[in-house]
Every structure is written in structure tokens, then in C-alpha cells.
């Protein structure tokens, strides 16, 4: 069996489930946003009102966390395919996963500022 430490899940199965579950959450969130955009005129007031809903805040954070998990696993898979130098791969993984973390934290701060 191949041992790995760089990805988010604890095993291949765990990664597989998390990838698909996070993809479903992201799909649902996309539909939620598209539904809002399609059903109302976009003004500052409606946009701000939409994002002040607890539902939207929680769903946005949930989607951001799903994005973090999805990106962590997905990027690890892409990097282990294409970047063969371990130091470079480690550095890229650190950098890109950090960016994903920063998105989540930024989202948290921004949403609670609305």
C-alpha cells in the first residue's frame, strides 16, 4: 500500500468521498447563487440584504470550507501527477493550500462584516 501525508483525507476512499461531497455542496451553492441572481434585480440593497441572511452566511461559509477541502485534495492529486521534484511540490502545496485557507478566513471576515 502506498502511504501519503500530503492530501486532506486519511485514505484514497476518504479523499474520494470528500471530493464528491464537497463538489455536491459547491454545486448546491452555485445553484443557490444563480437562483438569487436570476430571480431579483441586482442592486446594492438586494445584494446586501441577501448576504445579511443567516442562511446565506452559513451556506457561503459551508461552501468556502467545501472549496478548501476540494482544492486541497484536487491540487494534491494534480501536483503529485505533474510536479516530480518533492521540494517544489511541497512548496507549491503549502502555497496553494494556504491561499485556499486565506479564502475561507477572508470569507468569514467579509460575511460577518455585512
Amino acid at each position: 500500500m502506498v502511504k501519503v501525508a500530503g492530501t486532506f483525507g486519511r485514505s484514497g476512499v476518504h479523499d474520494y468521498i470528500l471530493l464528491r461531497a464537497s463538489a455536491l455542496i459547491l454545486l448546491a451553492y452555485t445553484l443557490y447563487l444563480v437562483g438569487f441572481v436570476a430571480s431579483s434585480d441586482i442592486t446594492y440593497a438586494t445584494w446586501s440584504g441577501f448576504f445579511s441572511l443567516t442562511m446565506t452566511k452559513v451556506f457561503s461559509l459551508f461552501a468556502l470550507i467545501a472549496m478548501l477541502v476540494h482544492a486541497w485534495i484536487g491540487l494534491w492529486q494534480v501536483l503529485t501527477d505533474y510536479v516530480k521534484c518533492t521540494k517544489l511540490r511541497g512548496a507549491l502545496q503549502f502555497l496553494l493550500t494556504s491561499v485556499a485557507f486565506i479564502y475561507v478566513l477572508s470569507g468569514f471576515v467579509i460575511l460577518w462584516g455585512v
Binding site: M1, V2, K3, V4, S11, G12, D15, Y16, Q77
Partner: peptide
């Protein structure tokens, strides 16, 4: 199945 249960063997 245990021998295949990792992130590479099958799930790549």
C-alpha cells in the same frame, strides 16, 4: 482490498 486501499493504487 486492503492492499488496494490507498490514494494511488486505484483512486488515481
Amino acid at each position: 482490498l486492503s492492499n488496494l486501499d490507498d490514494a494511488f493504487s486505484v483512486f488515481r
